[in-house]
Amino acid sequence: MKMYKEIKTIQSRLIVMMIIMVGAAIAVVMLKNFAVGLLNSPMMKEYLKNSPYKNALSLMSKLSNDFSYYTYSQWFGKNYIQLSALVAIVFSFPVFSKEREKRTVYLLIGRMNRWEIYSSKILTGYLSVISVMFAGSFGYLLTAYIMKYSLPFSMMFYWTVMATIGTLLLYQIGTYASLIFKDQIKPFLLDIAIYIGIYVSGLFKQTRFLNLFGYMGKSDVLKGAGIAIFPTVVILSMCTAIFIGEYLQFKYMDL
């Protein structure tokens, strides 16, 4: 199986990202108790009553009473998305650039054809992204169940699917950045610039449709919405388009 080489080269990063993801998920669930304990302390209530932020108190009580809301605001709408960006970057930036920078690409070329090289790399990355994302959400769900919090499975599932699809797009863009640069630093920096761009686009009304992070951590799910079909189709099509375009560029590239 041609993917063996890619699995071996991504293996250590995969393990580290799994640990970070699952560790963060568990920590966020655990912190709920701590946060609630803190909120219920008389001192905190007194402080919030006198604070200028009038709705802070209701927000805080919502946070402590409604676990789904807590889950969204602390995990699927926040840390999970931030970590997913990290996952995409960590798995994508060295994919091609490292092989070219270190000249290990000559070990592969000829022994595999370009499609085999390309597809084994990208698909291994896809599988890694999916497994880390699912580990993060299932780790969260499992911890929540153990702690006896109730969280609808469907909610968690929708968030996971959308966040994963968004991460796949980020990953695919990252691999493209990795293809066009011969060293490893530039794709890394470009990825970060793209993330900032996506984040900033979410701040303005005119460019809000570009806000991939908004899709990945959709708040409507809290109100019972499912997977947003239209953006999902658009994102998957973009992914496919980049996948194909990137392959054609890789196929006819001087190595």
Partner: peptide
């Protein structure tokens, strides 16, 4: 070009 030659070792 582009797929290389599987019956060659470099």
């Amino acid at each position: 070009f582009p797929d290389g030659v599987k019956d060659a070792s470099f």
